[in-house]
Every structure is written in C-alpha cells, then in structure tokens.
C-alpha cells in the first residue's frame, strides 16, 4: 500500500477520534437536557438533532461550504480545506448517532435513582457522575462507537468542503474515491478492504464489550 493511502487511513482515525470526543462533550449535556426537559417545544430540538439522519450529506456539505466562504466577506480565513473544518462538519454529521443513544439511556435511568441520590445528600453533579454515568454505560458505549464509525464512513461532507489535501483533509473515503475515479482499482480495493476490516473489527469489539457490560450490570 502506498504511504499516501496509509496516511489517509490514519487521518480518518484521527478525525473520527477528535470528532467523537467533541461529540461526547457537547452531546452529553444536550442529551441530558432532551431526556429531562419538559419544555413544550422540545420536539423541535429533537427534530433538529435528527436532521443529519435524513439529509443527504451533500446538503450539509454545500451549506457548510457557503457558510465557511461567507466568513471571508468579514475577513475571516475560511475553515474549508482544513482539519478543523472537517471536525465541525463531522460533529454535525454524526450528532444524532451520539445524542440519541445517550438520550435514550438517560431516559431509561429515570427519576427514582436521582431522588435516592439526593436523599442521601448527593449534589446533582455528584448524582450524575456516580449514579447516572455507570447506569448509562451501555448508552455511552453505543454512542461512542456509532459516532466514531459513522465519522469514519463520512464521505459526502468531506468531498464538498475538503479539497483533498494530503494529511489535512484527504481521508480514506476520499482516497478510495480518487483511486476508483483514477481507474486504479487495485489500490482502491486495498484501501477499501482495510477500511472494511477496521470498521468491522471496531464494531465487533465494542458490541462484544457492550454485551459483557450488560451481563455484568444485569
């Protein structure tokens, strides 16, 4: 395998890792709010979070390209063609895959354990970290793996805003696409197979862990 293709795989893993971390940090409070809030217009937020599930990635990529470009009008450097730009795109693109499992896990925890914790003198923050987090562990596992895997499979958004820069925005899916378009089917196969094996291994690992977690907690 060519070094540039290998680097594309590494970049994909880096993008998935950074995006998943950002998603967990931003997604946890959002999911918590969605699980606990009684605001009558909460459904609008639910719908907005689910949008990336139904929108073609090209729509997202197109609007990001326009948004990044319009920053130039006020003198900001564009985020298109940068790793940071890809992280922003990926966070939006994979948002429902992280927020929805977390929200469902928080809903499943319910109110009684929190009330019990409060009775025992725990602050809400203490209750969250020592009661909710352990109980919602399978949800976090699912959210992490789905967010990571979905970002690894990202293509349309990156194609629109990436600019195919090696080491910066040339991720594996783009490299595979370029190989196919360039009629180099052998190199495309190599990369695609590696990505397939990586994705399957990752999913199998996490689902395996998740099964054990369930056995332990059950």
């Amino acid at each position: 395998m060519m070094l540039t293709d290998f680097n594309a795989i590494l970049l994909t893993l880096k993008l998935a890792l950074v995006s998943t971390l950002v998603l967990l940090v931003l997604g946890t409070p959002l999911a918590w709010w969605l699980a606990r809030s009684h605001w009558r217009y909460r459904f609008l937020v639910d719908a907005a979070v689910a949008l990336p599930l139904v929108l073609p990635p090209t729509v997202l990529g197109f609007y990001l390209l326009l948004a990044f470009g319009s920053g130039g009008l006020v003198g900001l450097p564009t985020l298109a063609f940068t790793f940071t730009g890809l992280v922003i795109g990926s966070v939006i693109y994979s948002l429902p895959f992280v927020v929805q499992p977390l929200r469902d896990a928080f809903v499943a925890v319910g109110t009684p354990p929190l009330e019990a914790a409060a009775t025992l003198g725990a602050t809400p923050l203490q209750a969250f970290f020592s009661v909710v987090l352990p109980m919602a562990r399978p949800g976090f596992l699912t959210a992490t793996v789905l967010g990571f895997a979905h970002t690894m499979g990202e293509f349309g958004v990156v194609l629109m805003i990436g600019g195919n820069i090696p080491g910066e925005t040339r991720v594996a899916s783009i490299a595979i696409y370029e190989r196919v378009e360039g009629l180099d089917y052998a190199a495309a196969h190599e990369l695609a197979l590696l990505l397939l094996a990586l994705s399957f291994g990752l999913l199998a690992l996490v689902y395996g862990l998740n099964r054990r977690a369930r056995v332990v907690s059950g």
Binding site: L65, G72, M160, I161, I165
Partner: peptide
C-alpha cells in the same frame, strides 16, 4: 486545493472559499 472535477474547483471559487 483540489476539487474532484472541473465543476467542484469552480464551486470552491464561487463560494469564496478559494
């Protein structure tokens, strides 16, 4: 910056990203 084809290179300029 590299567009996958001629029209994408154009998009990058028209959207003022390049």
């Amino acid at each position: 910056v590299v567009g996958e084809n001629a029209s994408q290179a154009l998009q990058f300029v028209a959207s003022r990203n390049a």
